[in-house]
Design a protein around this nucleic acid. Structure first.
Length: 284
DNA sequence: CTGTTCTCCTGTAAGC
DNA sequence: TGCTTACAGGAGAACA
């Protein structure tokens, strides 16, 4: 599942391959991938003749800047891009194809069809609600402790779903949220407002470190798909709790446990991440 | 406004 | 062996 580090890896890979490429034609095989006011023919028509100038990223959204438009792309669970010669046969689950003037295609594949694309006027991504509500990028220069702590202190729900909201900080998904909470020694079910200032500070630092290291590693590759961009990371070898159910905790040796929090598989060490009695949330 | 549940999708694995 | 069910989860919609 692409989270911020994986999306950043895709961004770099795509930009290196297709910067300055010009779109000749667009084909859509699953209409629901495209949302917003420019869908179907209007989406295709707008992009014909457009040259890709740069690719930016905001949270887990890719922002492809053309001459007059910005294509906002979210990979959600399993979306991926590949750049291949136009004459190469389409793989299963190919939903959108951007034919380029140089004889190649940018192809969007997505087994689950959860990913979305939206075309807005150049640089107008802030008009999209999903981007407007994003918190700061998880970097030390913009993700500041004081506002994080202040917001967290007003959140009654569990800290894990709070961090997955993308509003406190953007970029965490199910893998890195478990890793950051483990590194900070905080139980995923602790209510946001139950964290002490010191705990919030440690969590803040853990989020910056975990995502920073994952970006350096090129993200986490759990299933490898040859030729797809962003599937070559190696952070999977640095995972301390995600997918480590039953394995000994690197800190205390007790087995890593798996449970469900807010409908999501959640990995943690019951010894290192304590949920004290008074912090127990009502059964959902 | 806050918090929770449902929905979208298909491949894979577990269960009977 | 073959059919059914559970599970994987990001984000937006729907709802209390």
């Amino acid at each position: 599942m692409p989270e911020l580090p994986e999306v950043e890896t895709v961004r770099k890979g795509l930009e290196n391959l297709v910067e300055k490429a010009v779109i000749q034609e667009v084909e859509i095989f699953w209409e629901r991938i495209i949302t917003g006011s420019r869908v179907g023919e209007s989406f295709k028509k707008a992009l014909v003749g457009e040259q890709l100038q740069q690719i930016r990223r905001r949270g887990k959204f890719l922002l492809l800047d053309f001459d007059r438009y910005t294509l906002i792309s979210h990979l959600r669970m399993e979306g991926k891009y590949e750049v291949v010669p136009t004459d190469e046969p389409l793989k299963l689950h190919t939903h959108v194809v951007f034919h380029l003037k140089d004889g190649r295609d940018i192809r969007y594949l997505d087994v689950r069809k959860f990913g979305r694309m939206e075309l807005v006027l150049l640089g107008q991504e802030e008009t999209v609600a999903g981007i407007q509500r994003l918190g700061p990028e998880p970097f030390a220069d913009v993700f500041l402790l004081e506002p994080f702590q202040a917001k967290l202190s007003r959140i009654k729900k569990a800290v894990k779903p709070a961090l997955l909201d993308q509003n406190l900080v953007t970029g965490l998904g199910n893998i890195y949220v478990d890793e950051a909470l483990f590194q900070a020694g905080i139980h995923p079910l602790r209510p946001g407002n139950s964290l002490t200032f010191n705990e919030a500070a440690v969590l803040h630092q853990s989020i910056i470190e975990v995502l920073g290291k994952a970006i350096q590693a090129g993200g986490t590759t759990i299933r490898t798909y040859l030729n797809a961009l962003g599937e070559s990371g190696n952070f999977q070898q640095d995972l301390k709790v995600y997918g480590q159910t039953g394995e000994p905790c690197i800190r205390c040796g007790n087995p890593i446990q798996k449970t469900k929090v807010a409908q999501r598989g959640t990995h943690f060490c019951a010894h290192c991440q304590k949920l004290t009695e008074e912090n127990v949330l009502p059964v959902m």
